[in-house]
Amino acid sequence: MDMKDGAPAPLRLRPELAICEHCDSVHQRGPLAPGEAADCRVCGATLYRRSRLDIDAMLALTVAALIVFVLANAAPIVTMQSAGVTTRGWLMTMVASAWSHGVGPVAAIAAGTVFLFPLAQLALYLFVLHAARLPARPKGFGAAMHGLRWLRPWSMVEVFLIGILVSIIKMSSLARVTAEAGLWGFGVLTILLTALSTFELRALWEIHDGR
């Protein structure tokens, strides 16, 4: 426990400590009950937390979210009726339409943050959670964990959901726009992704350390 100068032993690990990412304060780790979080006493940021969900529950949630993801994309989001013509809009057809009507970069951002990144997130969750149940760390585990950390801020399903609602309201003066199953799908997907994000991913690094 002391920090005498002495011979520099390179890369001594101190897994019993936690350092606040936001202010660099050093804290002693302690056990947490499910659903609890440890906050930094200096700056108030969350140091680490323990999810209410264990790995099996997380796996079940991930599979559920993948199914909902497929449904949300397979079902139309809105139907529009005007002058006797009914049109239905899926996520991908709307992105394609936005792409071909001059908002290419915006369409690309939407395709990434609403379709590609959440899908990649779910696939990686599936992989790392499955890996956590194996006796040893499989190949690619580290890359998958880093990928998940990188993807987290760029997944914007919840923002998109509110964006659809705003555009439906704006359109209501022009045509009869009704929400379809796909919109509900994105609503449920938002809830499932939020639940998944409460999980402390870092805890997965420790699982294979103890074995």
């Binding site: 809105v78 529009m80 005007s82 013509v85 049109t87 809009g89 057809t93 709307m94 992105v95 339409s97 936005a98 009507h101 001059g102 908002v103 915006v106 369409a107 951002i109 939407a110 943050t113 801020p153 760029w154 914007m156 923002v159 998109f160 509110i162 964006g163 659809i164 705003v166 555009s167 704006k170 359109m171 022009l174 045509a175 726009v177």
Partner: peptide, 23 residues
Amino acid sequence: GHWSMLDVFAVALLIALVHFGSL
């Protein structure tokens, strides 16, 4: 951070919808 994307998505969706219905 990412919530400011709301207006961007809303405008893109609106353009898509308007063209769908050729309104």
